[in-house]
């Protein structure tokens, strides 16, 4: 824990969930660049003093609250639903079970439904497998994976990030936090030659590049505030909201004081794949204030449907 009683988050990583950088990096120049960016992040993690790698994966949807991977050694061979022909992904991940259990308790203290999962054969999602295989291949540092609840929205996701901060501070652990998510997530709906891969549309590319400008400037809180716009503009509406920036911003402290670095931005079957790092710094960027309320405790549904009805 730092002198200010704040959790020490060494840096954050934003990276894509698709398996090409792991399974077929040689298939295109773009995939190779993404792989090189992952490798650079791996090196930085190895050189850091991190005690834990914490992953929030958009490809692990949950329904019963927020699920937290707690199996000490998660061992399986994963195959992606779409890209099964690229090969299998055998893995062995070592989880920080102490963190996982405390995280559950801290979620509950903040009003969130949460549970740990500790089952042999539990299907760890493609995004988490890709990220942990590439960022921490030898399990040098224990990790923990958090699910993305399919119904949760802004307040719940921000409170989840704050529960992470509570837990890291309690356990006095230095963390690297990882969000696994595409930028634009529309893929081509037919099989393509990887060498001809490109962002699905000009609009997606334009938005991605604007988001990357914000990341590059370290404007994470600004991105968090833009999440609803991003969701409407470049996200296929599979879930209720674009949550990764909310979670990452809440976990990293809700400000714009970071050194951002875009290590790679390439197409992954049409979607926007970027590997980005955000390192806390002293300088601040941006000139905006926001009127969306900050939230410390999740109170659940407001029962709007049951109020105001005539007897």
């Amino acid at each position: 824990m730092s002198e200010t009683n704040e959790p020490e988050i060494l840096f954050g990583i934003y990276c894509p969930p698709h398996p090409q950088p792991l399974l077929s990096p040689e298939a295109s120049e773009g995939y190779s660049k993404l792989r090189a960016a992952y490798d650079e992040c791996r090196k930085r993690i190895e050189e850091s003093e991190a005690d834990i790698i914490l992953v929030y994966s958009t490809t692990w949807p949950s329904i019963i609250g927020h699920q937290i991977q707690a199996l000490e050694k998660a061992i399986w061979t994963h195959v992606d639903d779409d890209f099964h022909y690229l090969g299998s992904m055998p893995y062995e991940f070592h989880m920080d079970t102490e963190f996982a259990h405390s995280m559950k308790e801290n979620c509950e203290k903040r009003g969130l439904e949460a549970r740990t999962v500790e089952y042999e054969g539990f299907p760890i999602d493609t995004g988490s497998v890709v990220a942990l295989q590439l960022l921490n291949p030898d399990n040098r540092i224990p990790s923990c994976i958090l699910s993305s609840n399919m119904y949760s929205n802004r307040s719940e996701t921000i409170v989840l990030g704050k529960a992470v901060r509570d837990t890291l501070a309690q356990q006095n652990k230095k963390a690297v936090v990882v969000v696994v998510s595409s930028l634009s997530n529309r893929m081509f709906t037919e099989h393509i030659d990887p060498k001809e891969d490109r962002i699905h549309s000009q609009k997606d590319d334009d938005w991605n590049r604007k988001i990357l400008e914000f990341f590059d400037d370290g404007r994470l809180e600004d991105l968090s505030q833009l999440s609803r716009d991003i969701h409407g503009q470049i996200r296929v509406q599979k879930v209720v909201a674009y949550k990764p920036a909310w979670w990452l911003a809440a976990t990293m402290g809700q400000h714009n004081n970071y050194d951002g670095e875009v290590l790679a931005y390439e197409a992954l079957h049409g979607s926007g794949g970027a590997v980005i790092t955000l390192t806390p710094s002293t300088g601040s960027v941006g000139d905006k204030e926001f009127d969306e309320d900050d939230v410390e405790f999740y109170r659940g549904d407001r029962n709007v449907l049951d109020k105001g009805m005539l007897e």
Binding site: S62, I64, Y119, G121
Partner: peptide
Amino acid sequence: SVDPVFPNLFR
């Protein structure tokens, strides 16, 4: 087969 949402029920 382990259900990713209800692993407590289905393995």
